[in-house]
Nucleic acid binder design. Structure first.
Lengths: 328, 328
DNA sequence: CTGAAAGCGCTTACAG
DNA sequence: CTGAAAGCGCTTACAG
C-alpha cells in the first residue's frame, strides 16, 4: 500500500503537481486558479486520502512545525503538567512536540540537543540542567530559536519564562513565621547551581528574621529520601521548628519519612515550593507556593512561535511570572 | 549561519557526496573505502560540526527513527511514568518520540493519528480512547506499525501490551474481604467501553461473594470529584462497607472528599487499581493493585521496533503482564 | 490561468 | 577503490 503523493493527484486529474500543491496550500485564489479546478483538486485529494509528506515539505521549506522540548523528568508532576500545557498551546498553533528527558544529566542533555537539531526542529523549549550558560553557546551558533523555562541563566540573552522564585520563597518563610515558627531551616536540593533552586535559597535567606540562624540542608537530587531522613534526624532536639522545602520532591520525602515513623512531623511546620495534589490530602495539610504552570507553558510556546514566525523584529523577552501562596 | 551538508564536506575534501555518505554511515569498510580517506572524512565532518539532515534521510530511506505516542493525558502520573519508560527504551535504541494527548476525545485522537502519519513516524504506540476497534482500521490501511498499550480491543489482530485487569481486580476484592469488608461496591469510570475499565469491572463481579450485592457507581471521567461526592453520599447509611476503585483518579477524589469532610472514610475500606505515591502517605494508607509500568513501556517499544525492523516474519503478539497487590 | 524545472539533502544502485 | 546520476515528495520562482 503506497502512500498517495501530489503526483498521484496531479496525474489522475491531468494537471501539474505545482497546481495541486498551490491549491492544497490555500494559495489557489491568490494565484487565480480556476475555482472549479480547485474544487476538483480538493475532492480528489480527499478521495485518495492524501496526506502530505511533512518531511519533503520540511526539506524544501526549511521548517518542520516541530518543537523540541527537554525537561529533567516528565514523570515529575511539575514537568508533566508543564509539558501538557506546552503541548496544548503548541498543538493549537499547528506544531508538534518532540519531548525528551535529561534526568539532570549534562552529557545526556547535550546529546539530546544535538539529536533534536538533527531532526530539524524549528525551535527548542528547554528546562536546562546545565551548570553553565556557555553550554548553550552551541545552540546560538546553530541558530536554533530557544526559550528557556523554569531554569534560566543570568547574563544570557535568551528568551525565557520563569517565576519569581525569590519572592515566592520569602512569602513561604514569612508564612511559617505567621504560623508561629521561630527558626525555619531550608531543605534544598543539589545541584544548587540550578537557577530556580539558588533563587529560592536566596528568598529563604532574605525572609529570615535572624540571619544567624540560617540553616541549609543540601539533599542530593538522586537520593532524596535518604538525604531527607538524615536531615530530619539531625534536626531532632534542635531549636529549629519549621522547614521550607525548595521543591515538591523534598516535601514528599518528608511526608514519606514521617509517615513511616508514625509520629507525623511532630512540632515541625512545613511549607513547600510547588503545589501538588497530595498537600491537600495529607494531615496536617501542607501549605505551598504554587507556580502558574499553565501560564509558563503558554508563554513559552507563544514566545517561541513569535520568534519563529517573525525572526527579526523581536527583542529578547525574559518573562517572570508571579507565584501564589496557598495557605493551608 | 548555514547548516553544513554532505556536499560541503565532499567539496572541501575533493571527494564525492556518495563517498562521504557511505563513510559516515559506517559502510566504509564494507565498501572497501581507503582507511585514510575514511579518516579524513570523519575528521572533516567533526571539524565542520556536521549534523545530518534526518528529514532528507527519511525522505530517501523511508524511515525517520521517530515513534509516535498517544496517551489520554500525560499529566496523569500513570501515563507520565509510562511515557518515561517508553522514552528511555526508545532512546536507547536510537528512536525519538512525538508524544500527544487525546484527552479521551475520539475526534482529537483521530486527528492526532493523521498528524503523526503526516510526520512519517515509523510506528505508533497508542493508549486509545476509541470506543470501537474499527476506528483503527485506517491505521492498518496506512500500514503504520502499531502497538496498543493499556487499552486493547477484543478480536483485533494488533500487537499489544496490557495487564491482567480481571485478575488484578479480583485480587483487590478478595483483599477487601480479607480485611473484614462484607459488601464491596465498585467505583468505575465512564466511558466503560475502555477495555481496561470493563475488565476491572468484570474482575470485581467475579470476586464478589454475593453477586446479588453487586453495586457499581459510574463516575464521569470529566467530572470525577462531583461524581464521587454524590456516590459517597448515596453510600451513607447503606450496608456497603468497602470500595474498589478502578483507577487512581477515583481513589484520589475519594481522598479529597473525605479530607474536606474531616471524618476520613469512616467505616469504609478502600482499595484501588494503580499504585501511586500518595497511597503510602495518607492515613490510613491505601492498598492497591500495582501495574508494572516500566515493563509495559519496555515491552511496547520492543514489540514495535521488532515489527519495524523485520516487518515480515513476525506474528501478532499480545502480551499480558501480571499486576501486583500491594497490601497496606 | 497553468506547467516545466530546479532544488532542498540525502542514499543507493550502477558503472567503471 | 570511487564517482555520477537518479530520485524520495514537496514548493517556488519563472515563463508563457
Amino acid at each position: 500500500m503506497k502512500k498517495v503523493s501530489l503526483k498521484d493527484i496531479a496525474e489522475s486529474l491531468g494537471v501539474s503537481k505545482a497546481l495541486v500543491s498551490l491549491v492544497l496550500n490555500g494559495k489557489g485564489d491568490e494565484r487565480g486558479i480556476n475555482k472549479q479546478t480547485q474544487e476538483r483538486v480538493r475532492l480528489k485529494a480527499k478521495e485518495l486520502n492524501y496526506i502530505p509528506n511533512q518531511y519533503a515539505r520540511g526539506l524544501r521549506v526549511g521548517r518542520t512545525n516541530t518543537i523540541g522540548v527537554i525537561v529533567p523528568d516528565i514523570s515529575n508532576v511539575f514537568y508533566g503538567t508543564l509539558c501538557k500545557a506546552i503541548e496544548q498551546e503548541a498543538y493549537s498553533k499547528g506544531y508538534n512536540l518532540i519531548i525528551s528527558n535529561s534526568y539532570e544529566d549534562v552529557q545526556k542533555e547535550k546529546k539530546l540537543i544535538t539529536d533534536l537539531i538533527n531532526r530539524n526542529i524549528d525551535g527548542l523549549i528547554l528546562a536546562s540542567s546545565f551548570d553553565n550558560k556557555n553550554e548553550l553557546q552551541g545552540l546560538k551558533d546553530n541558530d536554533v530559536p530557544l526559550v528557556l523555562v523554569d531554569r534560566v541563566f543570568e547574563g544570557l540573552d535568551v528568551d525565557s519564562v520563569s517565576v519569581s522564585n525569590v519572592e515566592g520563597a520569602e512569602k513561604a518563610v514569612n508564612f511559617l513565621y505567621k504560623q508561629g515558627v521561630k527558626s525555619p531551616v531550608c531543605f534544598t536540593i543539589s545541584p544548587v547551581y540550578i537557577s530556580s533552586i539558588s533563587e529560592r535559597i536566596t528568598g529563604y535567606l532574605n525572609g529570615l528574621e535572624n540571619k544567624k540562624m540560617a540553616k541549609l540542608f543540601q539533599i542530593p537530587h538522586d537520593n532524596i529520601q535518604e538525604g531527607v531522613n538524615l536531615a530530619l534526624k539531625e534536626l531532632k532536639g534542635t531549636e529549629y521548628d519549621g522547614i521550607f522545602c525548595v521543591n515538591n520532591s523534598i516535601a514528599k520525602a518528608i511526608l514519606k519519612a514521617s509517615s513511616s515513623q508514625n509520629d507525623q512531623f511532630g512540632r515541625l511546620k512545613i511549607i513547600s515550593f510547588d503545589d501538588i495534589e497530595i498537600f491537600d490530602l495529607v494531615k496536617p495539610k501542607i501549605s505551598s507556593v504554587a507556580q502558574p504552570i499553565e501560564k509558563i507553558g503558554n508563554n513559552a510556546v507563544e514566545l517561541l512561535i513569535d520568534r519563529l514566525e517573525k525572526k527579526d523584529a523581536h527583542v529578547i523577552e525574559q518573562r517572570v511570572l508571579e507565584t501564589n501562596l496557598i495557605e493551608r
